[in-house]
Write a protein that binds this DNA or RNA. Structure first.
Lengths: 163, 163
DNA sequence: TCTGGAAATGTTATAATATTACAAATTTTC
DNA sequence: GAAAATTTGTAATATTATAACATTTCCAGA
């Protein structure tokens, strides 16, 4: 009965993409950063689904589209997008996903379904606070938090349950 | 004035290693798992310091010692050690570190100093609890948590401060 | 509208990390 | 002691990421 987060239920995904691209353009304009065609296309590809995409998956798409792309093409675009908070790298998967909270200055927490591959990005103040407290208790100056939870999303739990 | 955690201050590190190996032997005996010479040597190498070691660093050591080792040799040993909770993989570094809480059934949280490279493994019940709550709020079944905090350890903070 | 510098992209090569697949040896069990 | 299971050896290759340097494009100021 609980309302499920977007990635885990059917939705008009094109709306996600359109919104993400609009946000990205606004953010880049505000930061005087250049969202070039390749960068924008990479962002769009990454938003094709709520599953993280590997750098070489992106590369394959660009190549298939006839773009003259090499690994640095993709990694440079991804670096740019990460620096401007438009995508996140999922360290445990070596893959990239669109940022669901672009421009919000957040610490992302990722729920990664090992069955369907979808990833939900959360902002959990309670978690961030607890992490800060724990770091502070060790006099550690936290700068960058990697928090990735692998498991089963609601949909995949119920499927194994009664399918 | 706060007491600093072990990795961040000078200590008789050989004691860490000796203890870790003794624990590992006991754990493997209890679980009826075979801590073969290569596995034990890999564990010992990883415990050489509180800095994570890459798989190919381990491989280079084994080779230097005259062992006939190839990548699978190392990855297999690491897999075994991980499965028995004796080492952790740090996803954000592609490297491995000895588990400071072997046998304790914990969720590790790692404080990674970007200056000196040392890593402190913590068990923070407050953090684990907050993560569980956040996952539960999304009806997500958490199975494996990756939590890695990059930043500056107490020692390296004070060095940049007045050195 | 030139033009000089900065930013972005192209291109080739290679580094770093990790796995597959199959053969041989070793250990355990019966 | 032989069959089965586990561990190790070995070669090849897959996957992810970066280095280095040339070229092009963009933009600000003269």
């Amino acid at each position: 009965m609980a309302s499920q987060a977007l990635p885990y239920r059917p939705h008009n995904h094109q709306a996600c993409v359109t919104q993400a691209l609009a946000d990205a353009r606004a953010i880049c304009r505000a930061q005087n950063a250049r969202l070039t065609p390749t960068r924008e296309r990479v962002l769009e590809l990454i938003w094709q689904s709520h599953k993280p995409l590997g750098a070489y998956d992106v590369l394959a798409e660009l190549t298939a589209e006839g773009q003259n792309a090499a690994p640095p093409t993709v990694y440079r675009a991804l670096d740019f997008l990460q620096q401007h908070g438009l995508v996140h790298r999922i360290a445990s998967l070596n893959a990239f996903i669109g940022c669901a909270h672009a421009g919000e200055n957040h610490t992302g927490m990722f729920l990664i379904c090992r069955s369907c591959g979808n990833v939900l990005e959360l902002t959990a103040p309670g978690v961030s606070g607890a992490i800060e407290d724990a770091a502070k208790a060790e006099s550690f100056k936290a700068e960058d938090v990697t928090l990735e939870i692998a498991g089963l999303c609601p949909r995949c739990q119920s499927e194994t349950g009664h399918d």
